[in-house]
Simulated assay, not measured.
Amino acid sequence: MPTITVTGMSCQHCVNAVTKALEDIDGVFDVTVDLLSGKVEWKEESPIPIENIEAAITGIGFEVKK
């Protein structure tokens, strides 16, 4: 499962927003977001460029920790 760390999340609404943003990408499913650690995992039907994942997250106002 691909994993990234997202910063700026502070509540369940943030978790839901990140989950929905990733699930809106074709081929992404089974998204798991851990609020405390910021870890976000997902499954892909086929490889998806990490840039697409990062763009979906930054597009809703969060940052991806690198």
Score class of each variant (00 low, 15 high):
Q12C: 14
G61V: 07
I60M: 12
T58Q: 11
E51D: 15
V15Y: 02
P2R: 06
E41P: 03
G38S: 04
F62L: 06
V33L: 05
H13L: 06
K65L: 05
I60P: 14
C14K: 14
W42F: 12
N52R: 14
S10Y: 08
T19L: 04
A56G: 02
G59K: 01
M1E: 09
M9Q: 04
V33M: 05
T7S: 04
V33K: 00
K65I: 00
E51P: 03
I48T: 10
H13C: 06
K39I: 04
I57G: 04
K20M: 11
I4E: 00
V33N: 01
A17W: 08
E63Y: 02
I53H: 07
F62A: 09
V64D: 04
A17D: 05
V64W: 00
S37N: 10
V6T: 01
V40C: 00
G27K: 05
L36N: 10
I57H: 04
E23A: 10
C14W: 09
I57Q: 05
I25D: 08
F62N: 06
D34E: 11
C14F: 11
A56F: 10
E45F: 05
E51H: 13
V40I: 10
C14A: 13
V6L: 00
E41R: 06
L22I: 06
I60W: 07
E23V: 05
S10G: 09
V64T: 09
E23S: 05
W42C: 06
L36A: 13
V64I: 08
T58L: 04
K65F: 12
T3M: 06
I57S: 06
E54K: 02
I60T: 04
N52H: 15
I50V: 12
F29T: 10
K65Y: 06
T58H: 09
V33T: 03
P47M: 02
K39W: 03
A55P: 12
E51A: 12
A55E: 14
I53W: 07
P47E: 15
T7E: 04
A56T: 09
D26E: 15
V18P: 05
E44G: 08
I53N: 03
K39T: 05
T58G: 03
I50G: 02
V18A: 01
T5A: 01
V18Y: 08
V40D: 00
E41D: 13
W42A: 13
G38I: 00
H13A: 11
D26H: 05
V6N: 03
